[in-house]
Design a binder for these strands. Structure first.
Lengths: 393, 393
DNA sequence: TAAGTTTGTCTACCGAATAAACAAAGAATA
DNA sequence: TATTCTTTGTTTATTCGGTAGACAAACTTA
């Protein structure tokens, strides 16, 4: 059943609206907030004074007059709290400390060879502790810890399977909450990446955005109607296991002809090895291509073509405003993007093609970690406004 | 910018909530509504009396006592208005007159051979007029006219392309509004079918439902988060043109290896013709299979297998709660469903497979028309409550 | 210096939800 | 049958948040 509405809800929503307006437009005066939101000046004044009491915003100096009294400018108090946001990869962990605006205050990457749960947990804990210690003193302290994970994550933050780490059934969210007692987010890395590009990256103006994270495998994050879409249990976006060759190669997932068997970094590395370029990273292969190695350039083009087949499907399925490619593959953007675009141009239905933008991730290796930061910040502001509501009662 | 909240909005939302509760649970007393919604008894009484004044609901007799005063039962006034809802097919039009609960009061199917715009418009107009004339007298009269169309429809109800009718750029919504001056809905038939199954059919309990309309071509309607998902411009769900064979057959859409080139009714009919069974309808082929024609049974199984490939993709992409197969193909359910299920069972990833239900459309050839009826009714109740809100001001 | 403008606060008022009192109508029990 | 208890639905007083408009403060412009 839908919720009931009363004046408390009205106040909560309006307060969230004022806070949101300040977040988006600061520095901004009370008068401007009233104009932008449509709320009465008095209402804005009263809500603003509560937000100031709660240290979520602050006044700072006056703005320019436009023919009358000079406005008092309001600012988001972006240092009222900090988030610890982590991108757990297959070979390294990237951790950042951000403020409430998403500014990175500290950043650290730790490489590892042994992906065993015990070892990685040790690294995670010490990374979190280190970022925790480096956080400046603040009103609300660490407001959330979040991790993007290369695997299947349930809606309650349990990792069901992370194939490239060899993990199964790890209740990471619960473990972290018991240890740190702050709100925890555990999310699939592609979902987080999609949200990162939506909030901080190339998709800030798009409400319909599909983010394809292409690395060893392929995962896809869906922003539909401005929100992350997760499906019934959180397992949406398994487009890496979308069949693009009906009786194609057998995948370890049980399906045949999966997209990621033709269009992932792994394929590229395998094919390069066949050319005698063994144990090369994608960056080294890009150097090869830069040096004019036609065979490698051709590998990139083939890969781009296969990626384009999947992207074409995505455009047909979702009619998105934007398709974004992210993760390690973008190191080779210069070679694969033209091939992808060629395939899209040739194969996509005109109606769907006309409005879609195709881009590489703006945040590059920070897409996931910034998405996690966005989740953390969003959760904080939501519960923050909500709790104040409860105190009032 | 998000909307501002005040007491008028609160009242509107609560009134909608009360109406919705009556719609779902009638006959129901004021006291029960208060309990179900959490609203105060007095609030419910006041909102109910307004709804009675507006003839949207009515009292009718008393219910059983549970140890005290007998409750006055409230009913949705389902005859306060009627909808004209139409499914425009490639060879026939199905039109129904429904009340506000979705009960079919009149039904008529008109077959046609010439799909030219002029001819079909004539049929449409006379069908609408006939249903209009048969509508009983009521408070609100015809509250909406809607049409499901086998083609690409924009968010403003313009048909950009209906390949199997040979139509291009038909501003049908505008034309109908100018002629009838009531709210008009024009929607893709698969989208409408999805909504029909969601509201009246097999998907009433599912908020994440994918409906595959399989006929001459394939279209897909997406119910995500309980709502119809249409993408940026309304062109989502073109899964008929999802590549499942990378270098497969060329499609007239410009893409290659499209799902509908392997899994549609058209394919079945073509293959049957190669077996010497020319000019047979799908129902005749089912009879052949019933009579033990092994070749035809095998055709159905092959078709089911190909459909299953696409359904597997759908389950991986969306993690839906339910996948529903509809349109003319379900005449052959007995033969294709087992083959589809076999493919799903074999190829779908366990996490995604575990919770998904796979069904044939419950409403059969009425999925689309009932979806259109649901759109019509929903629009009426929305604008109804909203207008009353304006009058109060 | 005076008039006009913009900002932000304050006050009176309004409207909607709520709690509680109350009346109506029935059930249960002695 | 009379009394008490229950449930339903209405009415009344209260609370709370938003709004309009008055007002003072602070600035610009002429």
């Amino acid at each position: 059943m839908s919720q009931t509405w009363n004046q408390h809800v009205v106040k909560k929503e309006n307060k969230a609206l004022v806070l949101e307006t300040i977040k988006e437009h600061y520095p901004i005066s009370r008068a401007s907030i009233a104009q932008v939101t449509g709320l009465n000046k008095g209402t804005v004044s009263s809500l603003v004074s509560e937000l100031i009491d709660e240290k979520l915003i602050h006044e700072s100096g006056t703005g320019k007059s436009s023919g009358g009294r000079r406005p008092v400018m309001l600012f988001l108090n972006e240092s009222a709290g900090f988030t610890i946001s982590i991108d757990l990869g297959v070979k390294s962990v990237l951790g950042v400390l951000t403020d409430l605006k998403g500014n990175i205050k500290q950043e650290k990457r730790v490489h590892f060879d042994d992906p065993s749960l015990e070892g990685v947990l040790m690294i995670l804990y010490s990374l979190i502790d280190e970022l925790h210690d480096k956080a400046p003193d603040s009103e609300y302290g660490i407001v959330g810890i979040g991790i993007g994970v290369p695997g299947v994550v349930t809606n309650d933050g349990e990792i069901l399977l992370a194939p490239n780490l060899g993990w199964k059934k790890v209740a990471l969210q619960q473990m972290l909450f018991e240890k740190y007692q702050v709100p925890i987010t555990v999310e699939n890395e592609a979902n987080a990446g999609a949200y990162g590009e939506k909030v901080f990256g190339v998709g800030q103006k798009s409400n319909e955005l599909v983010y394809a994270s292409i690395s060893i495998g392929i995962g896809v994050g869906l922003i539909l109607d401005g929100k992350l879409y997760k499906g019934l249990r959180g397992f949406s976006g398994e487009l890496g296991h979308m069949t693009i060759e009906k009786d194609g190669k057998h995948c370890r997932c049980g399906n045949q002809g999966c997209w990621e068997l033709y269009a992932s970094e792994q394929v590229l590395l395998d094919k390069a090895a066949q050319l005698g370029l063994e144990h090369q990273s994608i960056k080294e292969l890009v150097s090869e291509a830069d040096n004019g190695n036609e065979q490698v350039i051709s590998l990139f083009e083939d890969l781009g073509d296969y990626i384009g087949v999947g992207i074409t499907n995505i455009i047909h399925i979702f009619n998105p405003e934007q398709v974004v490619i992210g993760n390690s593959i973008i190191a080779a953007s210069a070679y694969i993007l033209p091939a992808i675009e060629k395939r899209i141009e040739k194969n996509t239905i005109g109606f769907n093609k006309d409005d879609v933008q195709f881009n590489a991730a703006k945040l590059k290796e920070h897409s996931t970690v910034m998405g996690i930061a966005a989740f953390n910040v969003e959760k904080f502001f939501q519960t923050s406004v909500h709790n104040i509501q409860l105190e009032v009662n």
